[in-house]
Amino acid sequence: MAKSHKPVVWFPFAAGGTVIAFCMPVIVVLGLLAALGQVPPGLSYESLHGFAAHGTGKLILFGVIALSLWSSAHRLRCTCYDFGLRADTLIATMLYVAAIVGSAATAMFLFRI
């Protein structure tokens, strides 16, 4: 049977799509409140830093951000193709590399906390 690397790309995409669907609206709402000047108590430095200082908090933040990044990269690749940009290999490489770099950077930032 022909082997394909597609599942490797597709699984984090599906997981990320689910994570984005469940988590992204409420995250953006929290961000919007901060943008309106009504910073939620949970976004204060003490609260968020305390959350990220715990192993579980780090894992949640990393999981949500990394999966969302990967899923977005995959979706952006498809979006580019649908809008007529047919340099798929180049676009896919750029987006996936960006997602990997963003995930690695997130892990690094979280380890510093």
């Binding site: 984005i20 969302s68 990044l69 979706r75 952006l76 498809c78 979006t79 963003g102 510093r112 906390i113």
Partner: peptide, 28 residues
């Protein structure tokens, strides 16, 4: 499909937020 642009951009903002959070209270 277009929503992926905004969601993707927001993910980048979240990565920046983690950088700012790790840089200390003043940066945050």
């Amino acid at each position: 499909e277009v929503t992926s642009l905004f969601v993707g951009a927001y993910c980048v903002l979240l990565v920046i937020a983690m950088q700012r959070l790790s840089a200390g209270p003043v940066a945050w």
